[in-house]
């Protein structure tokens, strides 16, 4: 295997809260090759967005302890990179789109302003050229009447269109890596599919790697070749999506799979996982999923399980299930 585009090792991120230091992400690691797609799935609070923000160094300095571990991108550790160099990477090499296109665009600036800013900044285009590029980018994200829409303010656009504008901003400098943090969650179902299609097409066209973050395993499955499942700040399972769907090796993954509505017939009742994600301030001894796990055993509550290889490229953090698989 060649050197990956991105390699994250032992990433740990802590926040300061009223109740002391809180670990939002603990020892997360993964690799991503050029033009590959990785899906990160988990409930809100699982640490998936925090992981993504760490890649760009976007945490508030005042409340975040310096993340530990390493994020190797193109031969440099992003966590050690000075702010100036990091700024060249942000928006230029690694771009990001966010969940809520309503609030992610600046309400007092026009679409043209917000797109041109990126290309003026990273590619040194002048105002007129940047504006022309903005129109071209709006075309690329399939916004009709781009020459006219470019002068609109965000509140004059629909939610789907705003997310397209966000995507246009993100791909403006042809980044090598695009991080999409719940890009469709705030949108209507029909728009969701369009946005995912658009992302897929742009990925092929521009040859980007993509990290897609979602709480919806269905969305991930459709999009990503590899999937990483996070729970309460830790990776609980990572596998090629096909293997993950065929043989989930963690009860949490199974729960997420059961919660996907099947496409071929209507269901009256969807399976859900009992309970909710634990309060990050509360320390849970042993396996963090144990309080909600249907297959919990006594040992689960005592020692925290390690992430172990269970198959080809397949890692999981659930010894009981592994034992059961191994000894039928």
């Amino acid at each position: 295997m060649t050197t990956p585009l991105l390699a994250v090792r032992d990433l740990t991120v802590q926040f300061r809260t009223d109740a002391g230091w809180l670990t939002a992400v603990e020892n997360v690691g993964f690799e991503l090759g050029a033009q590959e797609t990785l899906g990160i799935v988990g409930e809100s609070g699982s640490g998936k967005s925090v992981t993504a923000l760490s890649l760009l160094g976007l945490h508030a300095a005042s409340t975040t302890r310096l993340p530990t571990g390493s994020i190797d991108y193109a031969g440099q550790n992003l966590l050690k990179l000075p702010e100036r160099a990091m700024r060249r990477i942000r928006g230029g090499e690694i771009a990001m789109i966010f969940q809520d296109p309503m609030s992610s665009l600046n309400p007092v600036l026009t679409v043209a302003d917000q797109i041109s800013e990126t290309v003026m900044l990273h590619q040194g285009l002048d105002r007129a050229a940047a504006r022309k590029r903005a129109v071209g980018l709006l075309d690329m994200v399939r916004i009709a009447d781009a020459a006219h829409r470019v002068d609109a303010y965000p509140h004059q656009l629909s939610g789907g269109m705003r997310q397209r504008v966000m995507i246009a901003i993100a791909i403006a400098c042809r980044p090598k890596l695009l991080i999409a943090d719940e890009p469709t969650t705030a949108l209507d179902v029909t728009i969701q599919a369009q946005i995912l299609d658009l992302l897929r097409e742009l990925q092929a066209e521009l040859g980007m790697s993509v990290i897609l973050i979602s709480h919806d395993l269905g969305v991930i499955a459709e999009f990503a070749r590899r999937v990483m499942v996070m729970y309460a700040g830790r990776v609980v399972e990572a596998a090629p999506s096909r293997a993950l769907f065929r043989q989930p090796m963690h009860p949490y993954t199974s729960g997420l799979l059961a919660a996907i509505p099947p496409l071929d017939h209507d269901v009256t009742r969807l399976s859900t996982i009992a309970g909710s994600i634990p309060d990050p301030a509360r320390r849970i001894p042993g396996c963090r999923f144990s309080p909600r796990c249907a297959e919990v055993e006594a040992a689960c509550r005592e020692t925290a399980p390690d992430l172990v290889t269970v198959g080809a490229g397949h890692l999981a953090r659930c010894p009981p299930r592994l034992h059961r698989m191994a000894a039928p």
Binding site: L56, L58, E83, R87, R88, M96, F98, S103, T118, I169
Partner: peptide, 19 residues
């Protein structure tokens, strides 16, 4: 969120505040 967007674009801290 749009401030985070600006930072994610690589806009400098001062420019983020000023613009």
């Amino acid at each position: 969120d749009y401030i985070r967007t600006a930072r994610a674009k690589g806009v400098s801290e001062w420019r983020t505040i000023a613009k």
